[in-house]
Simulated scan of single mutants.
Amino acid sequence: MSALTQGTEGPVEEAAPGYRAGRTLPLRVELARQLRRRRTAVMFGILAVLPLVLVAAFAIGGDPGGRSGQVTLMDTATASGPNFAAVNLFVSAGFLLVIPVALFCGDTVASEANWSSLRYLLAAPVPRARLLWSKLVVALGLSLAAMVLLPLVALAVGTAAYGWGPLHVPTGGVLDAGPATGRLVVVVAYLFGSQLVTAGLAFWLSTKTDAPLGAVGGAVGLTIVGNVLDAVTALGHWRDFLPAHWQFAWADAVQPRPEWSGMIQGTSVSVTYALVFFALAFRSFARKDVVS
Rank of each mutant, 00 (worst) to 15 (best):
P51H: 13
R257C: 00
V126W: 13
M1T: 11
D240A: 12
A249W: 08
G10K: 06
A86F: 11
T76Y: 11
E259G: 12
L97N: 06
L201G: 05
V55M: 07
G18R: 04
L191I: 02
G69D: 00
P179Y: 01
T207Q: 00
M147K: 02
A211M: 07
A274F: 04
P151N: 03
A57F: 04
V188Y: 06
F278K: 04
L97F: 03
T76W: 04
V87E: 09
G172C: 03
H237Y: 05
R257G: 04
P256Y: 01
G66V: 09
T24Y: 13
T181F: 15
W260A: 06
E259M: 07
L52G: 07
L131C: 14
S292V: 00
V188E: 07
F277T: 06
Q255P: 02
L27D: 11
V187D: 07
A234F: 02
Q70I: 14
M74I: 13
A139H: 09
L196N: 00
G221P: 05
L4C: 09
W250F: 12
G66A: 14
I224Q: 09
T272S: 04
A124H: 11
W133D: 07
N114W: 12
D176E: 08
L152V: 15
G65S: 12
S2N: 02
H168V: 08
V109D: 00
L89S: 10
L222S: 06
G94W: 14
G221R: 13
F278I: 05
G173A: 10
A15N: 04
W246Q: 05
I99M: 12
E30G: 03
A253W: 15
M43F: 09
M147W: 01
T76V: 01
W133H: 14
W260P: 06
M263S: 08
P166W: 00
T72Y: 13
L27K: 14
F285T: 04
F203C: 02
Q195W: 09
D230P: 11
F192R: 04
D176A: 08
L142G: 04
G62Y: 13
A145I: 09
L31V: 14
Q247A: 02
L242Q: 08
F277K: 05
G69S: 05
